[in-house]
């Protein structure tokens, strides 16, 4: 039996604190190839004899992607590796080139909808997961220097920001913030509304 090649092109897709390990399939004609994934944190490297920990949800799977979010739950450098199995044949480990630290996750601006309900300025924000808070900035159009900020921690539904005077437009933008890695996304597009039932208008 020819040696089973180790999985190649191992890489990480990490967006908004959701981390996925992906790799190229190992092709063995007429056979089902299965894969197993393990991870190693900085703690394991430095204090636990460089031990590796299996991810049982990604043990002997046929997919070439594994959701490692639950296990990458500290802001340290992680090693990841994958190997292939076909019947009794087993490949060497293919290891991710370099480490992965969740601090490098890419953060997208939150989906946001601004609502005027009478004299009240409200915002609805996308639920991006428990790791996220939002900095919501709002100001009277033309008075950017007097911008106000609110921190929204729990995204339940329509969050009340402030009251509005009749007449001027009020503009709002928001960014996502992850306390665990102390990083923020870029701002969402600005949306402006006006008191007394003005619906959300896209004004840049």
């Amino acid at each position: 039996d020819a040696l089973l090649p180790a999985p190649q092109n191992i890489s990480i897709l990490s967006t908004n604190m959701k981390h996925f390990l992906t790799w190229s399939p190992v092709i063995v004609r007429g056979e089902t190839v299965r894969y197993s994934v393990e991870f190693q944190g900085e703690y394991e490297r430095e204090y636990a004899n460089e031990s590796w920990i299996p991810i049982c949800e990604c043990s002997l799977i046929t997919a070439t992607v594994c959701n490692i979010t639950e296990d990458i739950s500290a802001t340290v450098a992680y090693n990841l590796r994958v190997r292939a199995d076909v019947g009794a044949r087993r490949s060497e480990w293919g290891t991710l080139k370099g480490f992965f630290n969740r601090i490098t996750t890419s953060l997208t601006p939150p989906l946001m909808k601004v609502i005027a309900d009478g004299y009240h300025l409200l915002v609805e924000l996308e639920d991006m997961g428990p790791a996220f808070q939002f900095f919501v900035l709002y100001w009277k159009k033309g008075q950017e220097s007097r911008m106000q900020q609110t921190v929204v921690k729990e995204v339940s539904s329509v969050v009340h920001l402030d009251t509005m005077e009749a007449g001027p437009d009020y503009c709002v933008k928001a960014q996502a913030y992850v306390e665990a890695i102390n990083r923020s996304s870029s701002f969402s597009q600005t949306q402006c509304v006006r008191a007394q039932g003005g619906t959300s208008m896209w004004l840049v």
Binding site: Y43, E44, Y47, A48, I53, A74, V76
Partner: peptide, 13 residues
């Protein structure tokens, strides 16, 4: 073991 690893790595940080 995976949860202990997560705590240990957070403690290391």
């Amino acid at each position: 073991n995976r949860k202990i690893s997560s705590i240990a790595n957070s403690f290391l940080s």
